[in-house]
Design a protein around this nucleic acid. Structure first.
Lengths: 214, 214
DNA sequence: TTCTTCATGTAATTAGTTACATGATTGA
DNA sequence: TCAATCATGTAACTAATTACATGAAGAA
């Protein structure tokens, strides 16, 4: 028992350790490559959290000598695996989104239409960039390469969501760029057709209809 | 000049004040109703940030008496409007996602298939609930009601994204539930067909193809 | 008139980020 | 052999959350 309780971030690290042992630096690499898209945390956190896992008896640390300095490699303990399985059994929180560009779109009537449209273009570029990176990894797996082939099913489920997420950002940006194409320079003077409001409401209603289905 | 620089959260509040003056409690209501979906922050933050805006000369505070206690109402200053417009001119960050349920899916090979599937069901229920709320507001606007009719174009752009986001969570959960339907109890023994990997890769490649288009 | 919920904050705590420091490795 | 980059961390700081406290308003 030690130093605060376990957070979702703790379990994110613990989950990585369940795959194989990692040095702290390798953990930061994984954060950039995969985990960062669903649970982003600063690298320095990854030097801190594993210590908490060790204090709870869920992981072990081994000091590995590289040249004159030491590197710490962490691995999961049997207790750690049990704790992870228990955590996986609990419901978990829905998605939480932080989207600064969308915030700027929301308040765009206080700025200019060119500013709004360049924000939309930036969002679209973001989606393209993410998708490029993801497509490259996908092709790598299709070619028979790619790390952790045993975990492909879990990666497919996860990447299946992320790619759709990137696609929705892209599609939305295109749609919004088209919609604002003929707006006056002052966006507070713009109007949208009733059919557009109907269309976006239908999207929500289609999903809401699943309530009955269960 | 005072007490730290302005953050995105500061501008989120400033944007609300540009619409009309609000008491702090009203600001927390707006956080629940609209802003919380794209820039979620705890209520207590909303009691603190406006003070920073005042210290920077971007907002004014008026103490309003209600019974024996006082309520603070904040309003934007001309300098505040200019600062907001400048901020809207800057590019802004792409979306950042925190998705605990997806994290559990990612590590689901360390648990059981029933646990995985109940996580998927929870994600789907989340999407349905959000969409219900959003659809109700959409119908309200279609009936001619709804607050801030002058800002409907900006709300359409914003809600247009959010509804598609809810829909993508829903569609993904259904897809994943179908895909895992015949999985063995131990999900680390599951496999997925090559066509599925091809399909999710095509999604990313379709978006990446926009690079050429610009 | 008492209970509950709405309303208005402050204080304590924690999670997370930015900045810094420095050794190891590689390649020009 | 020097510069650049990779690797490994710590410390200071800030943003944000949770917990708490209490007055006002309305319902039973």
């Amino acid at each position: 028992m030690a130093s605060g309780s376990l957070t979702t971030t703790s379990y994110a690290i613990l989950g990585l350790l369940a795959v194989r042992p990692w040095s702290t630096y390798e953990l930061t690499q994984q954060m950039e490559r995969s985990l960062g898209h669903l649970w982003p945390r600063a690298a320095s956190k990854l030097y801190e959290e594993p210590k908490k896992l060790v204090a709870h008896g869920l992981a072990r640390a081994r000091a590995d000598a590289v040249g004159r300095r030491t590197r710490t490699v962490y691995s999961i303990t049997p207790r750690g695996r049990r704790a992870l399985a228990r955590w996986l059994d609990e419901p978990g929180e829905g998605p939480v989104l932080e989207f600064e560009q969308l915030l700027k779109v929301f308040f765009s009537d206080q700025g200019t239409t060119p500013a709004l449209r360049s924000t939309l273009a930036a969002a679209r570029a973001w989606a393209v960039e993410q998708s490029e990176r993801s497509a490259a990894i996908g092709r790598q797996y299709l070619a028979g390469a790619g790390p952790f082939p045993a975990r492909i099913p879990q990666q497919v489920l996860t990447v299946g969501f992320l790619n759709e997420f990137f696609a929705v950002v892209h599609r939305w940006a295109l749609w919004a760029e088209a919609l604002t194409d003929d707006w006056p320079d002052d966006p507070s003077a713009a109007t949208v057709a009733r059919e557009v409001v109907e269309a976006i409401t239908r999207v929500a209603e289609a999903v809401a209809a699943d309530r009955d289905v269960g």
